[in-house]
Simulated assay, not measured.
Amino acid sequence: MRIDIWSDIACPWCFIGKRRFERALVGFAHRDDVQVSWHSYQLDPDLPEHYDGAELDYLAGRKGMTPEQVRRMFDHIGGVAAGEGLRYDFGSLVVANSLRAHELVHLAAAHGLDGPVNEALLSAHFEHGEDIGSLEVLVRIGTAAGLDGSEVEQALADGRYRAAVQSDIRRAGSLGIQGVPFFVLDDKYGVSGAQPTEVFSETLEQVWREANPLVMVSPVAAEDDPACGPDGCVIPGRSAVPARAPQPAAARSARHSDRSIE
């Protein structure tokens, strides 16, 4: 099974959705047969490389919300994140364009490290107040995940993965994706948003069953097939033996009491 996930490093619900999806995947019996790929999406591609102001100021200006409304939103999202084991710190968050962070994820994907790099970027942004637009921070995150520092510097300097980022964004548009996180399973099923873990679990099971239907060796059950059903159990060559109905506990205890008196 292939799962493509569109996400933005600057999206708080994306980190929450990642946690919930991963919890569902851990409990999925066929998780070793699942291939997960991360794709880029930018909520605000026009954001300057570095924004001179706090996250509260940025969101209040961009969304036309009052500071108090933004604070309530922070409290709500922070509470949901805490329920997933995440410790968001909106007060220390550095507002920055996520483009180069996405380029780093694509470089990491070329080395099979996009999962841990994406995780580290989200944590750095939302939990540790680090600047995801800083070359120094990105090189440190990349090398900590196992990438070569010189390759990270060079790739971010020459923008070799910028076209791949833009390609992801265009593909999201062609699929009708207008928000993240967004999960696409086997190029057929879409799940929008940071859904509860149970929704991801049910979807994984459904997609797996449809892609791997049970094939019966004996399409039609014969009358002498050794099996049990509602009408009893079959003994080959003989008619079905009626299944014995279970007796209520009260009746069983009553009969046992009668015998003990005798």
Rank of each mutant, 00 (worst) to 15 (best):
D4K: 03
R19S: 11
R20T: 00
F28L: 09
D32Y: 01
D33K: 02
V36S: 07
D46M: 11
Y51H: 07
A60K: 00
K63E: 11
E68L: 12
V70I: 11
R71E: 15
I77P: 01
G83F: 04
E84V: 00
L86I: 08
Y88T: 02
G91W: 00
S92T: 08
L93D: 01
V94S: 02
V94Y: 05
A101H: 04
E103G: 06
H106I: 08
L107P: 07
D114K: 00
D114T: 01
G115F: 06
P116M: 10
L121P: 04
L122H: 09
A124N: 00
F126C: 01
E136A: 11
L147I: 09
D148T: 04
L156G: 04
G159Q: 11
R162Y: 07
A163V: 14
A163Q: 15
S167F: 06
A172C: 08
G173R: 06
G179M: 07
V180I: 06
L185D: 01
G190N: 02
A194E: 02
T203N: 15
R209P: 10
A211F: 14
P213K: 07
V217N: 13
S218Q: 14
V220R: 10
D224V: 05
D224S: 10
P230T: 09
G232M: 14
S239E: 15
R244C: 12
R252M: 15
